[in-house]
Design a protein around this nucleic acid. Structure first.
Lengths: 243, 243
DNA sequence: ATTAAAAATCGACGTTTTATCGGATTTTTT
DNA sequence: AAAAAATCCGATAAAACGTCGATTTTTAAT
């Protein structure tokens, strides 16, 4: 997996899919999304059912404890106790606390992408798809606040420092965004400007809103506020001249 | 010090200064900035010169080690060794690693605000002041990359979880921003929209650019890219209708 | 200059948390 | 039902954090 730069500038390559604006763009879009949504997978597959259950219990317990105490203050022993297993058993599943912390958000990220893939199926046009993508991001954070707290306030963006599976999943998240921006430019609804800059404004503004909500529960209605800020940015963009 | 919500929505109070748009606004601005720039101070003042030197050595060492290893992997013993003192001496200065991590970025933040205070002295008008503020932020991150890496990738926004001095300093950073946005609205150059939302778009977009630069050194010229994205957002805003 | 008090430093040591290992137990395979 | 594989756990090692009292250095008073 190549480590390219998500949501940034001056990168010459177009994006993942390739053929934008010329022929069967919708099939490419479906394929692109398919690939990305099915990517997050644990390297080590557990053989026994009991083991799968234990793994799930560990992940659930870890999410609760990490969200409550923060990663650095959380203790492995607490997580194991919460999961109803011994500390040494936990180490059978994860080689370190860091390892565990990076794995916890993965399943949710995959679930989000899958939800989006289904919801976007009957949408066409970059605008509708992009608006849905970002609105659903905000909504997913609201529905899974513990997870969002862990991801947005503790792991992201520090995850980028290391080369983890999670990092690639987050890169994928950005990749979808840039893909849609390029799609909109190809459709002619948005000005031909640096797509990475455009994506940065969209995701930057939205993340700011999500983080503020996680910290202060303000604005009260995150779903609404998320849609509003994205809608506002899109309207501003659409009024922009290409120069 | 009251803990209000920075860069967010639905907060009814105007801002710190108070009298915007009615009478001597510039004196209020200067006072406001004065207060904020002089705020960051260590609670415990060291008595001896030797001690002040040691404290500085600890902070320098901590910055290097934290930036190199990340906070969670960094070891107190390494920092002490790098500072040329014993571990127990370090504990004389900071009661925990967390404590130290939160204090490291403080002095730089204060230095930035002071730099800005001087640079903005001969600027008038919210637009010029805001553009300078955000451009200088990007530039300061470029000039002090280790510090920026620590602050943007490791501490911010997780610092908000706790009630530290650093958190208040970062809140102050946001407060200046919202202040300037309100000033611009009062001047009539920006539309009468939720100032917190406007601030979120500005700072969110810019932070996204800074983070990308810290991670990938892209865009190459952070100063330029920072100015550009802020300039673009401002132009979009100024073309916006109030509805 | 002398010296007593205060401040700062450090090595030794106790505590907490992380991580490992070998064998017991359970499940799957043959 | 025996063998093999997978899973689980108690005991214990290893590592990092944090404390304390003795010692050195600085300050300030005589």
């Amino acid at each position: 997996m190549n480590v390219d730069v998500p949501v940034t500038f001056d990168t010459s390559e177009t994006s993942h899919g390739g053929n934008l604006g010329k022929g069967l763009p919708d099939e490419a879009w479906a394929d692109f999304l398919q690939v990305i949504a099915s990517r997050p997978k644990r390297a080590t597959e557990r053989k026994q059912d009991r083991s799968k259950r234990t793994e799930q219990q560990i992940l659930n317990a870890a999410l609760r404890v990490f969200a409550r105490d923060g990663i650095s203050r959380a203790r492995i022993a607490d997580i194991a106790a919460e999961a109803g297993i011994s500390t040494s058993t936990l180490y059978e599943y994860y080689k370190s606390k860091e390892d565990l912390a990076y794995d916890v958000p993965m399943s949710h990220l995959a679930a989000f992408l899958e939800e989006y893939r289904q919801a976007v199926a009957d949408k066409s046009g970059a605008r509708e798809r992009l608006l849905l993508y970002l609105s659903m991001s905000a909504d997913y954070a609201r529905e899974h606040a513990e997870w969002a707290r862990l991801l947005y306030l503790e792991i992201w963006p520090s995850v980028f420092i290391n080369d983890t599976d999670l990092r690639h999943s987050i890169d994928d998240f950005s990749r979808v965004l840039v893909h849609l921006v390029n799609q909109g430019i190809a459709e002619g609804i948005w000005p031909k400007r640096n797509p990475y800059q455009t994506a940065a404004i969209l995701v930057g503004g939205l993340n700011q809103v999500i983080i503020t909500w996680l910290l202060y529960r303000q604005p009260r209605n995150l779903t609404k506020a998320g849609s509003e800020i994205v809608e506002r940015i899109l309207l501003m963009m659409e009024a922009e001249t290409t120069e």
